[in-house]
Simulated scan of single mutants.
Amino acid sequence: MTEHFDANVVDEHILDEQRYDQHAYFEQIYARPVILESKKLTQVFQHDNVQRTILNQIDLKIHQREFICIIGPSGCGKSTLSRVVAGLDHFDSGEVLMDGSPIHGTSPERGMVFQGYTLFPWKTVKENVMFGPLMKGMSRTRAEEMAREWIHIIGLDKYENQYPHQLSGGMKQRVAIARALVNEPKILLMDEPFGALDPHTRQKMQKHLLDLWQNINITILFVTHDMDEAILLADRIVALKANPGEIKEIIEVNLPRPRTPELMQSDAFKQLKAHVNQLVHADDDAHDPAMDNLPEIPRMTHVSNTK
């Protein structure tokens, strides 16, 4: 039986570090409806006579308002999985279901934030955030109201009339997040959104994202190659193996919320990181086939490298 869930109510007894109960926390998560499910999801890349399985038999259930991080070695299909869920990439077999219905193409109910700054350079911050509501047929007045509300939430009120080239990297990604969330999606897909940021800005963006997630009704599927980031953010971490891309293990992050950078110094964090690290790098010998048979580098300098 699914218990009633109010997205606006935070279970303080679960989030409080002193009274944290891992079993109760995940029991509550698994009692919520499944919002996204993949069944035997398989994607094969074919180029001339070369065939490579990118995703193989992916079975995954994500529950309402869950924060899932996807992690794995290069070439394991992390980004491909997020693009398939977004409706941007095809898949060859299996199913991808949103609220029990098959996904066909893109939809405002699935927002996407990429690593690159995908804002329209000719539009202001406000115009970028207004774009989605206007495309859905909303009046310009209402679209502007919603855009200003989200610009306020991300803390960029003073910059609403600035253009992307006038913003820092962190500001651009905040605008990209607002542009996705203004459409009121059920799930937010994030493909290494903080990968290009400096460490300090990245840490601030992680905190801001957690604040957003804890206060709005949104489910997040977050792709990252950074183990610290995955452990800091996720309820569960889905570790993929490469060649072919398969689920190796799904890890419940048994650390209390709210999480802070100081938590990264704890023994529990370090133990979990060691486990995730072992999962990600255990198959390093089964490396990317693109690294096979690399040519010998010809000598192109007379400067000695022995002095």
Score class of each variant (00 low, 15 high):
residue 51 Q to A: 15
residue 282 A to E: 07
residue 244 P to Y: 01
residue 259 R to S: 14
residue 201 T to K: 05
residue 224 T to R: 04
residue 19 R to I: 07
residue 60 L to P: 01
residue 121 P to N: 09
residue 273 K to Y: 01
residue 56 N to P: 02
residue 147 A to G: 15
residue 113 V to N: 02
residue 63 H to R: 04
residue 62 I to P: 00
residue 65 R to T: 13
residue 175 V to E: 05
residue 156 L to S: 05
residue 194 F to D: 04
residue 222 F to A: 06
residue 132 G to F: 00
residue 165 H to S: 11
residue 219 T to K: 00
residue 15 L to G: 12
residue 7 A to C: 10
residue 6 D to W: 02
residue 117 Y to D: 12
residue 162 Q to G: 06
residue 244 P to S: 05
residue 141 T to D: 12
residue 132 G to E: 03
residue 176 A to G: 13
residue 159 Y to E: 09
residue 225 H to W: 14
residue 261 P to E: 06
residue 234 A to C: 05
residue 235 D to E: 15
residue 189 L to T: 00
residue 198 D to W: 06
residue 55 L to N: 08
residue 137 G to E: 09
residue 162 Q to S: 07
residue 301 T to I: 09
residue 96 V to I: 12
residue 3 E to V: 12
residue 72 G to T: 05
residue 8 N to V: 03
residue 216 I to M: 13
residue 84 V to E: 08
residue 172 K to R: 15
residue 140 R to N: 10
residue 82 S to V: 15
residue 161 N to Q: 11
residue 305 N to I: 09
residue 177 I to H: 05
residue 170 G to T: 08
residue 297 I to R: 10
residue 305 N to S: 08
residue 138 M to Q: 12
residue 129 V to E: 00
residue 192 E to A: 05
residue 156 L to A: 04
residue 5 F to S: 07
residue 11 D to N: 11
residue 107 S to I: 08
residue 113 V to D: 01
residue 213 W to I: 13
residue 178 A to G: 12
residue 203 Q to P: 09
residue 68 I to N: 01
residue 4 H to F: 15
residue 197 L to I: 05
residue 64 Q to I: 05
residue 271 Q to C: 02
residue 243 N to H: 15
residue 225 H to L: 04
residue 5 F to H: 14
residue 121 P to G: 08
residue 80 T to H: 06
residue 56 N to E: 11
residue 79 S to H: 09
residue 257 R to S: 14
residue 50 V to R: 13
residue 169 G to R: 04
residue 163 Y to I: 04
residue 53 T to N: 01
residue 60 L to G: 02
residue 280 V to K: 03
